[in-house]
Computed example of a mutant assay.
Amino acid sequence: MNNQQIVSLLNDLLQITNDRIEGFSKVEGKVWEMYPDIKDEYDRMISQSKIMKNELINLITEKNGNPDDSTSIAGAFHRIWIDVKNSFTIGTVEDSTLENVIFGEKAAVEAYQKALQSGNLDQKSAKTVSDQLHHLKESYQEFKKIEEYKKNE
């Protein structure tokens, strides 16, 4: 494994993290009116995403790489799809938004798992990515609990 491979992989994860931050910003206000009790958890996830972003940027910089501090094309298409889908949603926008958050969190978990399994990370990067994966899994499970709670209302 060389620094270029590591930097490339870390930049992919940085874009995914930026996609999360961008996606979370689109959710604000849509869900809080119906589910104000999850606002604190959501705010914690946004803060955690920003910490994750900074950790990835630091790792990339330490490896003499240039952080690609943008969102991914796939993430942009997903956000556009969400907007289109929400304009035709039967049911509530809040329910559709929650489904989209869960989809995005699951995709992030899968990307992080794939990055760890690739074997293309050095020990320090793998530790950071593993820690971040733990936070992503917690976030995913939290949103899944909210979805289950809503189904039982």
Rank of each mutant, 00 (worst) to 15 (best):
M1H: 08
M1D: 10
N2Q: 07
N3R: 14
N3V: 09
Q4S: 15
Q5T: 12
V7Q: 01
N11Y: 06
N11L: 10
N11E: 06
L13K: 03
L13T: 03
L14T: 09
L14K: 09
Q15L: 11
I16N: 15
T17Q: 10
D19Y: 04
D19A: 11
D19G: 10
R20V: 11
I21H: 03
I21E: 00
E22P: 05
G23Y: 01
S25D: 11
K26V: 01
K26E: 11
V27P: 03
E28D: 09
E28N: 12
E28C: 10
G29H: 05
G29A: 08
K30C: 00
E33Q: 14
Y35G: 02
Y35M: 12
Y35V: 04
Y35P: 00
Y35E: 00
D37A: 14
D37E: 14
D37L: 05
D37T: 07
I38T: 10
I38Y: 11
K39S: 03
K39T: 08
D43E: 15
D43F: 04
S47E: 11
S47T: 15
Q48I: 11
Q48M: 13
Q48Y: 11
Q48C: 13
K50L: 12
M52F: 13
N54L: 14
N54V: 01
N54A: 13
E55T: 12
E55N: 15
L56Q: 02
I57G: 03
N58P: 05
L59Y: 11
L59C: 13
T61F: 01
E62C: 15
G65L: 04
N66I: 13
N66P: 00
D68G: 11
D68M: 12
D69T: 06
S70W: 00
T71V: 14
I73C: 00
I73Y: 05
A74F: 14
A76Q: 15
A76D: 12
R79W: 02
I80P: 03
I80R: 01
W81C: 04
D83G: 12
V84R: 11
N86V: 05
S87W: 08
T89E: 07
T89Q: 09
I90K: 15
T92D: 04
V93E: 07
E94P: 08
E94W: 02
L98G: 07
E99Q: 14
E99A: 07
N100M: 13
N100W: 09
N100Q: 14
V101Y: 07
V101R: 05
I102Y: 02
I102M: 08
E105D: 11
E105Y: 02
E105S: 06
A108R: 10
A108C: 02
V109I: 11
V109D: 04
E110R: 10
A111Q: 08
K114L: 14
K114V: 08
N120Q: 15
L121V: 13
D122W: 01
D122R: 03
D122H: 12
Q123R: 11
Q123P: 01
K124C: 00
S125K: 00
A126K: 12
K127M: 12
K127D: 09
T128W: 08
V129R: 05
S130L: 01
S130T: 07
D131I: 06
Q132K: 03
L133H: 08
L133K: 09
L133W: 02
H135A: 13
L136A: 07
E138R: 09
E138H: 11
Y140V: 04
Q141L: 12
Q141P: 04
E142G: 08
K144W: 01
I146Q: 05
Y149P: 00
Y149K: 15
K150R: 15
K151W: 00
K151G: 07
N152W: 01
N152H: 03
